[in-house]
Design a protein around this nucleic acid. Structure first.
Length: 228
DNA sequence: AATGCGGGGCT
DNA sequence: AGCCCAGCATT
């Protein structure tokens, strides 16, 4: 939000609207049924998003189910012993995530009355929460129009809205964050952001993208370039 | 801007 | 068997 909002984006509004409509339609038919999509509990969303950092969906599934069963609320996690939390995480890797999530639960208990905060700055301040995870929590738990930008989304947006000049890498990042925010349709942040992730994970993949059946073909700068 | 973190996927 | 990958924190 903040910084990215100042980036000057010139966007084809017609293309953006077509992209939104097509992506949402695609998601309604093809969206995956994932455990953390069946809840709006901000705590459980936070747990799932931390687990999903650097870890694939199929691997996270079982860990997520066990974890939220063992620690159903932020209070339960905050009260747990560190060694126990570490055990619950065993096999997932990147154990700093477990320590950070535990510390985040305690921060939420102490400083936010047991509720995951709703302001970007406060979510970002939680240990182990960066810009991606903060956006995921805000949009998936609270429906806020907060942008998310992970590898999948980065790839999808880059391909469809390819930028002509690639100025500096940092400039590219700023543009992508601004783009990720600008394309969120009003009132549909949850579905749209979920759709972006699924689309990148299943159709607009890094290797062998499914361009031949892609509903975004006519809009896509990458496809236009690859076809010619 | 560059690196480490743990594991899995891909070659 | 070895290389590559990616959010976040740290340097």
């Amino acid at each position: 939000m903040g910084k990215s909002r100042r980036y000057r984006l010139r966007l084809d509004e017609v293309k953006v609207q077509a992209f939104q409509a097509r992506l949402l339609a695609w998601f309604r038919r093809n969206g995956r049924d994932l455990p953390w999509r069946r809840t709006r509990d901000p705590y459980k969303i936070l747990v799932s998003e931390v687990m999903l950092q650097q870890t694939q969906v199929e691997r996270v599934r079982e860990y997520y189910e066990r974890f939220v069963q063992e620690y159903p609320t932020v209070q339960d996690l905050a009260a747990a012993r560190p060694a126990r939390v570490r055990e619950s995480w065993e096999g997932l890797g990147y154990y700093a995530r477990a320590r950070n999530l535990h510390a985040a639960a305690r921060t939420i208990e102490r400083r936010h009355g047991g509720k995951v905060p709703r302001r970007l700055e406060e979510v970002l301040a939680l240990p182990g929460v960066g810009r991606y995870t903060a956006g995921a929590v805000l949009s998936f738990a609270y429906g806020e129009p907060a942008p998310i930008l992970d590898t999948n989304v980065r790839r999808v947006l880059s391909r469809i809205f390819a930028s002509r000049r690639a100025a500096s890498p940092a400039g590219g990042e700023r543009r992508l964050w601004a783009l990720a925010e600008a394309v969120i349709p009003a009132g549909k942040a949850w579905a749209f952001n979920q759709a972006l992730m699924d689309f990148g994970a299943t159709v607009c993949t890094a290797r062998n993208p499914g361009c031949s059946t892609c509903p975004m073909r006519r809009l896509c700068a990458y496809y236009a370039g690859a076809a010619s």
